[in-house]
Amino acid sequence: MGYTFTWEQLERICRKLNMERQGKTSVWKGITPDGKMRTCIIHAKHKGNIGPGLISKIAKEQLLFDSVEELYNFYKSI
C-alpha cells in the first residue's frame, strides 16, 4: 500500500517529534525523550506531495522510523 504525505504533514510530524526549525534554514532538529537525535530537511517553498522514494528515505534515514508505514501510523496517532 502506498502512503502519501504533504510537506505540511511532514512539518507536523517533526513538531510532534520535538524537532524545531533552525532559524530561517530548511533544517529541523531535536531529541525525543527516548534519546533519539533527529535531523530533517524541509523546504517551506515546496508544494504538493512528497515523492514516494523521498518519503521512504526521510522516514528511515532522517526521522529514524523503520518504514513509511510506521511513519504513517505515527502521523495518524497525532
Binding site: 504538493g48 515523492g51 514516494p52
Partner: peptide, 24 residues
C-alpha cells in the same frame, strides 16, 4: 534520483547518500 514527476508527485527528488540531504 529517487522520484520523477508522475502520478504521485510533481517533482524530481535527488538524494545524496553520504549526508542524507536531498533536493526537490
Amino acid at each position: 534520483w529517487l522520484d520523477e514527476p508522475g502520478s504521485e508527485t510533481d517533482n524530481y527528488s535527488l538524494w545524496n547518500r553520504e549526508t542524507g540531504v536531498y533536493g526537490v
